[in-house]
Design a protein around this nucleic acid. Sequence first.
DNA 1: AACAGATTTTGACATAAATCAAGGAATCAA
DNA 2: TTGATTCCTTGATTTATGTCAAAATCTGTT
Lengths: 229, 229
Amino acid sequence: MSKARGILSQSILFSGLPETDINALLSIAIEKPVSTGELIFSEGDSGDGFYVTIEGLIKVYKLSTEGKEQILHMFGPGEPFGEVPVFSGEAFPASAEGIKKSRILFFPRRAFRDLIAQNPSVAMNMLAVLSRRLRNFTVQVENLSLKEVPARLAGYFLLQSEEQNSEDTITLNISKGHLASFLGTIPETLSRMLRKMNEQGLIEVESRKIRILDRQGLEELAEFGKMET
Amino acid sequence: MSKARGILSQSILFSGLPETDINALLSIAIEKPVSTGELIFSEGDSGDGFYVTIEGLIKVYKLSTEGKEQILHMFGPGEPFGEVPVFSGEAFPASAEGIKKSRILFFPRRAFRDLIAQNPSVAMNMLAVLSRRLRNFTVQVENLSLKEVPARLAGYFLLQSEEQNSEDTITLNISKGHLASFLGTIPETLSRMLRKMNEQGLIEVESRKIRILDRQGLEELAEFGKMET
DNA sequence: AACAGATTTTGACATAAATCAAGGAATCAA
DNA sequence: TTGATTCCTTGATTTATGTCAAAATCTGTT
């Protein structure tokens, strides 16, 4: 489908590739629709290939024995996921499922490894993708270990404000439940923190719209993580 | 120095390279002694290259504003570290310092990127290294977010017991303070947990020697994380 | 052997966040 | 519109772990 071609040729992984290579890629790829809540792979499954999101949003997550979920990443259009087993040779370290109605492309390991061996620039792109992912993990570990929930939440808002380049209003593209899971907490706690930040005049919440009232306050909170009472 | 050659030619990254390439690598590498507690790079520094540990042990870590430390990784002989900026083009996301008297090799970015572009097998090795590192981070995030300190500690012991392949006794190669920092807690808490595990007959502690008394108990603890009072 | 410094342990206490339980709101389908 | 399901909020309580302070132990050095 032509949408897939557009996404691929713009993607971090394959941008810069000549059209013939993109065609070759598309010819080995398998497109798959994913509905909300549909499981794509489970932790421990053997990874016979990796995926690129064409449309929608995919979460990669872990579950505790008691059922608490921690989202590790979310992947939108153009972003690859599930590549770790392709290179490490082991099973998927986490599970993946659709957060919204999505379409994804599956690339079999073998064909992709061949492409990389042939094509140093794709290898470089892949190295860059994995490096950026490592950097993100670094931040996530820092957040979980060294910061408290309000600081993580403030940091998330500031990041979103950059990504959506909007100074004063951001729109959550995920549910608050998912946000809680991404921040490493539970919905109850998130709800309380949102109320507290509201009471302190930092933000205003209206369903999925967050109005930033005190950016500097948020920045301090993100860095030092202390909220007066 | 000849030690470096041996380590490099056995390392995950460069194993399989012909001797001429190893020689080329050694000719561009800069060897550096590192003493205990010596800083190698700081978060935010621009990364002009990466390192391989030849001897000793290096920690890569983050600090909170209040000074709490979280160790992200520790790297022993043959293990590369600090590669993220080489491929992502940004600054170091964390800091590195010697945990013991060490020797490291520094590889300038440029020369290394050239080597990779020439040498698909090195690129593949590097992809494998980064993939494995991502897998580790996955576990670390899971531990911090979904498990409690006793479960992380039990998991650590079981892992060490595998790595040191010794069923019943393991020897910590780092101080308890560092272990606490690696597990995302503080020395006081670690100390208490060790005592508790001792009281429950799971382990016996004698300075840096840990005797495993109840392996199955440890496995349950690592998975479910519940200790009866 | 003895000191200085670092490391580890212990106790009393504070607190962030999880749990449990229930009630409200929003969303979707029929 | 109605009901049904999911999502979100709120309050009361518990709990794991952090903080602070001090003592005890270990380590290497002179």
